[in-house]
Amino acid sequence: MSTTPLRLVILVGSTRDGRFAPIVAEWVRTRVAAHTDEFSVDVVDLVETPLPTELPAFGQPPAPGAIELLTAVSPRLAAADAFVVVTPEYNHSFPAALKNAIDWHNSEWHAKPVGFVSYGGVAGGLRAVEQLRVVLAELHAVTVRDTVSFHGCWDKFDGDGNAVDPAADKAAEAMLDRLAWWAHALRDAKAVRPYAA
């Protein structure tokens, strides 16, 4: 079993103006740091690292401009042992920018665990998470059952970015425990036998 820290990518899935995502993503980063030293964290924010919006025709290579944008993201996703996807819910689903980031990649997701932190109104982003589970299963990712969800998110954080309900911290601990277990198990398994997708 490897003792190298697990590489965790926190993928910030919203790019909308005035988005709440940075508050939630920073909270996730601090929860990871407070919870365990098992992870080294890389935050991939799709505002800071935009991706091409048009996929090439099936079987065709990306255009040169697209390759330039992908080089800022793809190696970071490939290096990950695990992911936490931070997503809001838009119209009972997840943001187009997040779907685009998923669709531009394939092997980067293979045999890696994914946890979710969602936020929004009454549903707290849970409908987005349920749809993401189906999409990521197609890419051979393993989604963990435990999630963190912020219903009516705008009053769930204090001025310092801390969750006001201690239950959120407990939910994050449970999710990170499961994520670490799967990340270790899958990384060790792939070291013995490469994953065949």
Rank of each mutant, 00 (worst) to 15 (best):
L6K: 03
P75S: 14
K170Q: 11
H105L: 11
A197N: 04
A34D: 14
L46G: 09
A191D: 05
A167K: 12
P62S: 14
V43N: 06
R178P: 00
D146L: 08
L126F: 09
V85T: 07
P61I: 09
A172L: 07
E130I: 13
A197T: 07
G115W: 07
E68I: 12
V24D: 00
R193E: 15
V32F: 03
A21H: 06
R31C: 13
R16M: 02
P64K: 12
R7C: 04
V44I: 14
L186H: 03
P166W: 05
R193F: 15
T87S: 14
L98T: 03
T87Y: 08
Y90V: 08
D146W: 06
K190V: 06
G124N: 05
R7F: 02
R29E: 11
P166K: 02
L69G: 08
L179H: 04
A163E: 02
F150G: 06
G120S: 04
F83R: 01
V73H: 04
T36G: 07
E130A: 15
V192Y: 02
D165F: 11
D165V: 10
E173G: 14
R178G: 04
A63N: 09
A80E: 09
A78Q: 13
S107R: 14
L69V: 06
H35G: 15
S118H: 00
G59F: 05
P61L: 14
A168W: 03
W181T: 15
E108T: 09
K112C: 09
A57W: 08
L11A: 03
N162P: 00
L176N: 10
D146N: 14
T143R: 01
H184N: 14
E38H: 11
L69D: 08
V144T: 13
P52C: 08
A57Y: 06
V86F: 09
A163I: 08
S74C: 11
S118I: 03
A82K: 00
R7D: 07
A66Y: 11
L132V: 13
H105E: 07
P62D: 15
D37K: 05
N91S: 12
R133H: 02
S40L: 08
A168Y: 13
K190A: 13
A128I: 01
A72M: 10
L77K: 03
G121K: 05
H92E: 07
V114K: 06
F150M: 12
L55S: 11
T3A: 14
L136T: 02
W182F: 15
F58R: 00
H105G: 08
E130T: 15
K190H: 07
S149K: 10
